[in-house]
Amino acid sequence: MRIAVLLSAGRHPVSGKPTLPRTEAQAIRMAAGLGAATGLHVGPDAFPAEAALGHGLDYAAHIACAAGSDPVGPLAARIVSDAPDIVLAGRRGQGGDETGLVPYAVAARLGVPIVPDAVAMRPATDGLVEIDQALPKGVLRRLVVRTPVVVTVHPAAPPPLPFAFGKARRGSIERIAAAPTDLAAGAPPPEERPYRKRPKMMRAAGGSAADRLKAVTGEATAGGAKVLDHQTPEDAAKEVLAFLRRVGVLAPASAAGPGRRPAASEDASRHATS
């Protein structure tokens, strides 16, 4: 099985030094248990590729491109030409040019499924891979997915192997020049919205602490589940809305009058900008 690990240029939250994001180092360890892994970094600086070698990769490709240009195009092009079975990536951006939504954009560009938050992976029979996916509250879900697939790694996966200087020294980095792409051309323009006051989730719950916890976490007890099958879309939507109002995610129908919203949001946005 061939694996490509997407590497991004993170920053240490305290020192601000360039750092390979932890989840990507974890991805390298996970990839080592699956098959031949190579690293792939698109960006101005080769640092993430070098760090990845120290964490256990033998080979990484660094596609050089200008700071601020869109990495999705070069990444997708490289993945298409390499055709790995699995693309492993970090999970979200926490600092610097960390991966953020790039895995999702790459999966969309490639037209392959993306499975977020893997904690363990095992190759299954021909072209299938078994993924343990982390869900909230420690729940694991086992998925069997057909490759190729993009998978992001959850922090609860086995901890990364420490950086080893000798390994970093032994591994090799291939430097590739990419055709410059403009970030603005590739990515959708960022959207700005006025601040919206969040509905209070606790209000509807009341009762004991256990009730409130249940309301917030939405614990699905067997008795609470309501299975509706073969509904018309309108009925289904009504049911979903009613449920959301009941657990307090949406404000009750009477409070959602159009008159109060803009005033509240204006007020809040002044707060946010001041």
């Binding site: 964490h55 256990g56 901890p159 990364p160 192997l161 420490p162 950086f163 080893a164 200087f165 000798g166 390994k167």
Partner: peptide, 12 residues
């Protein structure tokens, strides 16, 4: 540590 990435787990 330098060649095998194998310092004690707790020191990672």
């Amino acid at each position: 540590t330098l060649e095998l990435s194998a310092p004690p787990q707790k020191s990672f």
